[in-house]
Write a protein that binds this DNA or RNA. Sequence first.
DNA 1: AGAGAAAATTTGCGCGCGTAAATTATTGAT
DNA 2: ATCAATAATTTACGCGCGCAAATTTTCTCT
Lengths: 342, 342
Amino acid sequence: MDETKIKNMQEFAEVSGISRPTISKYFNDPSSVRPTTRARIEAALERYDYRPNIYAMNQNRRLTKTIGIVVPYLSDPFFAEIARNIERRCLAKGFWPILFSAHGEEDHERDILDSLRSLKPVGVLLAPLGRRSDKRAVEKFCKEVPTVLFDSNIEGVGEAFIGSDNGQSIPLIVEYLCRTGSPPCFFEMPPVNPNANKRRKAFVSAMEQLGHDPQVIRIEGKTWDFEQVGFDGGIDALKTDRFATSTILCSNDRLAIGLIAAAHELKISVGREDGCQIRIAGHDDHPFSRFTSPSLTTIAQDYAAISNRSVEVLFNLIEAGGDLRTREETLFEGKLVMRSSA
Amino acid sequence: MDETKIKNMQEFAEVSGISRPTISKYFNDPSSVRPTTRARIEAALERYDYRPNIYAMNQNRRLTKTIGIVVPYLSDPFFAEIARNIERRCLAKGFWPILFSAHGEEDHERDILDSLRSLKPVGVLLAPLGRRSDKRAVEKFCKEVPTVLFDSNIEGVGEAFIGSDNGQSIPLIVEYLCRTGSPPCFFEMPPVNPNANKRRKAFVSAMEQLGHDPQVIRIEGKTWDFEQVGFDGGIDALKTDRFATSTILCSNDRLAIGLIAAAHELKISVGREDGCQIRIAGHDDHPFSRFTSPSLTTIAQDYAAISNRSVEVLFNLIEAGGDLRTREETLFEGKLVMRSSA
DNA sequence: AGAGAAAATTTGCGCGCGTAAATTATTGAT
DNA sequence: ATCAATAATTTACGCGCGCAAATTTTCTCT
């Protein structure tokens, strides 16, 4: 490593004995120059540790290499995991992923979209807040920036949507619960996104299909602190005996985690074993759901598939110049994960 | 909103009837221009929706407004929460926070520092991976970029360190556990960062102080999937009866969450009530620790204080031109959170 | 060895902004 | 009305790179 500092591409071109445009070409795509030239550049790179100025690059490029990733709530390990996977794949393709979390606030989501616009990303992967999103802001954003939606759909917005198939997963677990014990009732909080609604509807229809009366217990809660909502609502519902049956299907795992804690607090035994008083099931296969006591029976969303497919579609979108012919919605099936709670 | 698109600052200067340098000045600090001028600019801004090109701005500015935030593992709600708080405060001060997670991988941490360098941030808040960090890379980075370390310390590296005081918190909970039942043994995995080491040492010394024999149970585990490590190691240790006493102090909450699940799996009752077989305590007050069954007795790290102070110190550092006279280490005390598990 | 293709080079412009110095206009208090 | 202080303007240059067109060099194949 030579100690002479290289200021810019011109200087680096001089010390490496190669013209600046060729160097520029190399940095945009190392494989676009002849192997011998590439070797010479990389040898010089070893010695001088030069890196092009990102800001100058992005200012002049037709398209930046920036990819925006926006999630509604990063403290939720579900999104943290997905973000991690997406980041990885973007980096592998030579893009610059940049991660944003709306932290559950619509204002912040709007600000993020604003910031993102000025970053001029080639593409964006967006998991909207859902119900609380400023739909017009999102819509406007998607018209300007090639965007793929995931997790939470907004009809007609974005170039594609990738999510999980609530219409398949809920009947799957409802059927399982009915087959192995008392039919479930449905435990939910005010829906924060379309998934919540679809799950309730799927529950009702699945129960009717099986000839049972679909009971929905809706509790209060406006925050993204789902576990707390589930706990508080659970304590209340359990104390006042609001659950119609001894089997409870929760709208998502985080709610279920809170509910299990509530049951434990009230010394109500949870599980599918003989002697247990209630059964609790969730939906999502949250990373922590295997460590609840008892471990949570749930539906595994296919994290990997959703994030992989989202990235693939985005890459296609980018290659197509930011415009897919038709807006496709891809839904992945969930798998039943039988653990101890139901 | 006028439909004529403004391409650059020159055009915006023309339509607003103000010179470009003044516009430029306004965007760097709106309060630096006369109120009447400011009003005229903002009126024009309403009509034309112009935003300066970030890349051009950052290319030419002496100092960017970018602040880097680097955490070791974003799926851990502890870091997600801290990141959220830091982001907020940076935005409030007019900075551009940008979040990175090393995802538990030292290679990725190094790559992040590389990327960050080219973003030329005014300042960086870094929670290193810890033991697995490439210390030389971190050290080199900190010499070039004004950096404040938090959560996990690296001696002498960075302009300051903010963390929690393990030397206070561990004796606190050890004393509590000894006072209310059998003295604890210490449950840990191979230390991933200095905190883990400090906690073990603090445990040993606290126990000796109280005249007890300090027993440490070390389990295997190399990943950041602490719950799983705690579960697997817990199953093993419980089955083979490796715990010296019926009270177990875990190195951190995530490990404790896994251990509670393991105890439940083996039908070993956990809690401080009469009739329970073992007590389990943690450290950190992880967001989920109130929802374990039983809820986890632990030490609450002061999330807010740590993140607030980190940001404050960074702001001071930035104002001081990137160089504080002395490297200060600030440690916040933990508070005992008594729940049901111990 | 020679021809054509492929790659590298030369030259030069443009991007959108920061910044500095010198000049002119505006303000607020005397 | 006068003057100094403050603010805005004019003018001009520079940042570090992308990109395009024309030219020259190098490679590949016969």
